[in-house]
Design a protein around this nucleic acid. Structure first.
Length: 465
RNA sequence: GCUCCCAUCGUCUAGAGGCCUAGGACACAGCCCUCUCAAGGCUGGUACGAGGGUUCGAAUCCCUCUGGGAGCGCCA
């Protein structure tokens, strides 16, 4: 039997990190077993679902490379099917009309709470024969009254629920629309889902869904309930920390590979390994290695993983993202080959592509002004002759490459009886505007001879002013 | 309130009764390397929530407590 998993977000908010981790595990599991990954949009809440939110989900999934084999399916387009099942259940006595008013339900709930009981519907309409005039009923599922449901969860093990704890849930509202738990059941059934991998918060819904699946005449799929992801402070994800659209991570300069790697390591592990390519994760992923406890996001570690990927990926792979970041800074991009050199020079000193772009501006446009502290220290009257001589030596170079550039600067230092830093730092400030850049030979090599000489000229004038 | 889930360094985790005076990673501190910043290398501190069992032996199994979380909607 081929494995079929599904990711079923509801487009009522943002596709955030928690959702992405769920999607990733579904995707990995399907890929690992040569199965099918389904995307299903659960938009039955017509009040809160928006087309924009749907688009964010689609864009996010695309950016991450979590491609679906089937879908996206939309629940709102499946209403005829849901009605059909409800009619069948009504006819078969698996469901019934309930005419209780909201006030009546409210009173029931309050009474139960007062008795320190769990609030739940008492099934009083189960035996009602006649419609109540003037009331449009809802439809409720007849949950078994006795016995227990065992959820054989792939991460938690067996979890037992007594049917006496469950009640007859509403499957069709009085406005005729089906409800979430019911739609999920019909969809998972129709789409032949074999593995339901979703957040922990659904564990309590599972026995109801299993009862309904059995009412449809099938044995439920395998369930795997993933632990929650928390904010850095260990509390629930909120807008203030982490609960932002995945696309915000792109803007912050994270690679999809890195974000996915980081998310996979939240709740899943493979020995001591920290860095995984997507291929490695696909080959190694197993639900048996998923742990049960919630975990907090650690932005520092995400940044570290991002840099590890920046350093390992072929530079050509990161060029498009760097170009995108530079464009966001209003810097018009250069050739791919130059950008590749920039990636190579900058990647071990950049946690994110955003940082890399900011630190690389000077390669594409002269510094507007020198960083004050650096200029005061390195663009001094004493430095002027050093810059002057360096400029002459560089102008005379036949081969404009890191090795000869390095040799020329080294020679300047020795001739003046100076440390390399006394020569390199003024040059660095002259070309980059600040005191931090990749090694000076690499920097000048990328910048090009003409641009280097022009910037030295300007800096010499500044030092002598 | 009721039901269910969870519990190893600050954080992410390894650990399926002896390999654990608890390993790795991020972060932090120090040192090395060094033209800046990094990257890299080395060193260091910090954890099995508490109490009871079971066992020759428990981070690992059982119970209780404590602490955290989820669900209990004509939301998903």
């Amino acid at each position: 039997m081929t494995v079929r998993t599904r990711f079923a977000p509801s487009p009522t908010g943002l596709l955030h990190i928690g959702g992405v981790r769920t999607a990733l595990f579904c995707w990995l599991y399907a890929r690992r077993h040569g199965g099918v990954f389904i995307l299903r949009v659960e938009d039955t809440d017509r009040e809160r679902s928006t087309p924009e939110a749907v688009q964010v989900i689609l864009d996010g999934m695309r950016w991450l490379g979590l491609d679906a084999d089937e879908g996206p399916f939309y629940q709102t387009q499946r209403y005829p099917r849901y009605r059909e099942v409800i009619r069948e259940w009504l006819a078969a006595g698996k469901a019934y009309h309930c005419y209780c008013s909201k006030e009546e339900l409210e009173a029931m709930r309050n009474a139960q709470l007062a008795r320190k009981e769990k609030p739940r519907y008492d099934g009083r309409c189960r035996s009602r024969r006649e419609p109540v005039a003037g009331v449009t009923p809802v439809v409720r599922f007849k949950n078994p009254l006795e016995g227990a449901v065992v959820v054989a969860d792939a991460v938690h093990g067996d979890v037992v629920f007594q049917n006496s704890e469950l009640d007859d849930l509403i499957i069709e509202r009085s406005d005729g629309n089906p409800t979430y738990n019911f739609c999920v059941v019909v969809d998972d059934y129709d789409m032949k889902v074999t593995h339901v991998i979703r957040g922990d918060d659904h564990l309590n819904n599972t026995p109801r869904q299993m009862n309904m699946l059995r009412a449809m005449g099938v044995e439920p799929p395998v369930y795997a309930h993933l632990p929650m992801i928390l904010g850095p402070d260990g509390t629930k994800l909120s807008k203030r920390h982490g609960a932002v659209s995945v696309l915000a991570y792109r803007e912050e300069g994270y690679l999809p590979e890195a974000l996915l790697n980081y998310l996979a390591r939240l709740g899943w592990s493979h020995g001591d390994q920290e860095i995984f390519t997507l291929e490695e994760m696909t080959a190694l992923f197993d639900i048996a290695d998923v742990n049960k406890s919630a975990s907090a996001i650690n932005p520092d570690k995400l940044a570290w993983i991002n840099q590890q990927h920046l350093m390992r990926l072929p530079p050509g792979k990161v060029v498009p993202e760097l170009r995108w970041q530079l464009e966001r800074l209003g810097v018009s991009a250069a050739s791919d080959s130059m950008l590749e050199s920039v990636v190579l020079a900058q990647r071990e000193r950049s946690k994110t592509l955003k940082e890399m772009a900011e630190a690389s501006r000077f390669f594409f446009e002269p510094p507007k002004d020198y960083e004050e502290k650096s200029a005061r220290k390195h663009l001094t009257a004493e430095a002027a002759p050093v810059l002057e001589q360096s400029k002459a030596a560089l102008r005379a170079l036949v081969d404009w490459n890191p090795a000869p550039i390095h040799a020329a600067i080294q020679a300047q230092a020795e001739a003046g009886g100076l440390g390399l830093g006394k020569v390199a730092q003024p040059i660095r400030v002259a070309v980059s505007g600040g005191s931090v850049s990749p090694p000076i030979d690499q920097t000048l090599s990328i910048l090009g001879r003409d641009e280097t000489l022009a910037r030295l000229e300007r800096a010499i004038a500044y030092a002598r002013r």
